[in-house]
């Protein structure tokens, strides 16, 4: 069995979690202040993931940019590739928070969605 301290980075509280795990799964966590830690720590050990947040330009909107994010955390090693994909994306027409900007980005099964409105 393995043990270690991992900072939960889901929110600014930054709980320093005591984690125990074996080759296959997370066995226990201690010192978490909320339930969001379990999924994050498990991923951080076996398949680190991040939510990518950035902006894309709008076509017509009052605001030159809308902010976007991956609707779910994506594998950490894809973060810069996703940025490259989004570098050439422009949002068409009026955009509302929640609208899908890119479906299934890089085959991850995760959509890029808007988090703000263009107008």
């Amino acid at each position: 069995m393995n043990e270690g301290n991992i900072v939960c980075t889901v929110c600014p509280t930054s709980c320093l979690i005591d984690a125990k795990w074996d080759e296959k799964e997370l066995i226990s966590i201690d010192r978490a202040q909320c339930k969001l830690a379990w999924g994050y720590i498990s991923d951080e050990i076996f398949d680190p993931k991040r939510v990518v947040t950035t902006t894309v330009p709008t076509e017509t909107g009052k605001n030159p940019l809308v902010s976007v994010k991956t609707a779910e955390p994506v594998p950490k090693h894809l973060v810069l590739d996703i940025m490259d994909t989004l570098a050439v994306v422009q949002a068409k027409g009026p955009v509302n928070a929640g609208d899908v900007i890119v479906a299934d980005v890089l085959g991850t099964g995760v959509n890029i969605i808007a988090t703000s409105n263009s107008d």
Binding site: T9, V10, C11, K35, V51, T55, S67, A97, T115, S116
Partner: peptide, 18 residues
């Protein structure tokens, strides 16, 4: 525009604008 807002109040991490 980064995420991590609302975990204490809403149990979910939102971006600032959301």
């Amino acid at each position: 525009i980064h995420d991590g807002f609302g975990t204490k109040l809403m149990g979910e991490a939102f971006t600032g604008p959301e």
